[in-house]
């Protein structure tokens, strides 16, 4: 705003601009406080629901039935870990490990397959490359619902309906379009001199991929990895259809409790909170990559 005085415009104009400058600075001061206040209220709105879940999960059932969770601010002594120990004793841990057993391979396979395909799209010339890549882009928005019935039939035929591998493969397939899209866009930006040098040296494509491109793509792979991990970890629909009780992840296990909502908050609240701890930790640890991935490929 101070630059306004140096404006080459006429003196009256400049003075007017200066006056407005002073005025707007005053408004800025007062408004700055207001903005802070508004943002604090908004932040509370965004924090309260999750905080509520945490506190509810730490309160005894009778407390939750009689008073609001916010009374813990005045009576913090009522918090207890009983809900958690009961939940863990009830076999919830099995669904936790199912979630892990689904999420880890689904994430790794997507990274591997997508990186290979993205490498071909970015660095190998073959007829119909752009057309094929447009197919990938088209598949980005295909709703999962389209595959539920056909894949259920196919899994029945293959004998993997209800099993963890079936769930994993489904997640891999539907994670691929975004993954290929994201990685291809990153690979294209790698200086081609690096690749051509390696090719000139006669390195096999596979080796260039594994030793040159893939290591350089670590930020993109990290972005993709955290996205895919969160999607699979947080998925409910695929598990609902393809995972039987033996193979069910936490989301499905918790969903089956929703029907009696109100009588089993002591199971749902700690279960929901346990299911979101690992995503939250990952999110805070890798939020830089999360944001990068978001900016790079916000089309899904």
């Amino acid at each position: 705003m101070t630059t306004l005085t140096a404006s080459p415009a006429g003196t009256s104009n400049s003075a007017g601009a200066l006056r407005r400058g002073v005025l707007s600075r005053i408004i800025d001061k007062a408004g700055g406080g207001l903005v802070q206040l508004v943002l604090i209220v908004l932040a509370l709105f965004w924090l309260l629901p999750t905080l509520g879940l945490l506190v509810v999960s730490l309160r005894a059932d009778e407390d939750n039935n009689s008073t609001g969770w916010w009374t813990f601010f005045t009576k913090p002594a009522q918090l207890t870990f009983d809900n958690y120990s009961n939940l863990l004793a009830s076999g919830f841990t099995a669904s936790f490990w199912n979630t892990v057993a689904i999420t880890v391979p689904a994430t790794l396979l997507v990274i591997g397959f997508a990186a290979m395909a993205a490498y071909a799209f970015a660095w190998i010339e073959f007829p119909g490359r752009d057309a094929l890549f447009m197919v990938v882009i088209a598949l980005l928005v295909v709703p999962i619902q389209i595959a539920l019935i056909p894949i259920a039939k196919m899994y029945g035929f293959l004998g993997i309906f209800g099993s963890i591998p079936g769930v994993v493969l489904f997640h891999v397939a539907f994670g691929l379009p975004f993954a290929i899209f994201l990685l291809r866009n990153f690979f294209v930006g790698i200086p081609k001199e690096l690749l051509e040098a390696a090719r000139m040296d006669g390195a096999a494509e596979w080796k260039i991929f594994a030793t040159v491109v893939f290591p350089l793509a670590k930020p993109a792979v990290a972005s993709l990895g955290i996205f895919q991990f969160l999607w699979v970890w947080n998925d409910l629909l695929v598990a609902l259809v393809f995972a039987d009780t033996e193979a069910q992840p936490m989301t499905k296990a918790l969903q089956s409790q929703m029907r009696q909502f109100g009588t089993n908050v002591d199971i749902l609240a700690p279960g929901a909170f346990l299911s979101l701890i690992i995503p939250l930790v990952l999110f805070f640890a890798f939020q830089r990559y999360f944001v990068q991935g978001l900016l790079a490929g916000s089309v899904k």
């Binding site: 629901p49 999750t50 509810v56 947080n234 989301t251 929901a272």
Partner: peptide, 17 residues
């Protein structure tokens, strides 16, 4: 942060809200 949380957990959170 809610983007990292599963929609199921978000659902439970808002059932409580």
């Amino acid at each position: 942060m809610p983007m990292a949380v599963s929609l199921l957990a978000s659902g439970v959170i808002f059932r409580l809200v």
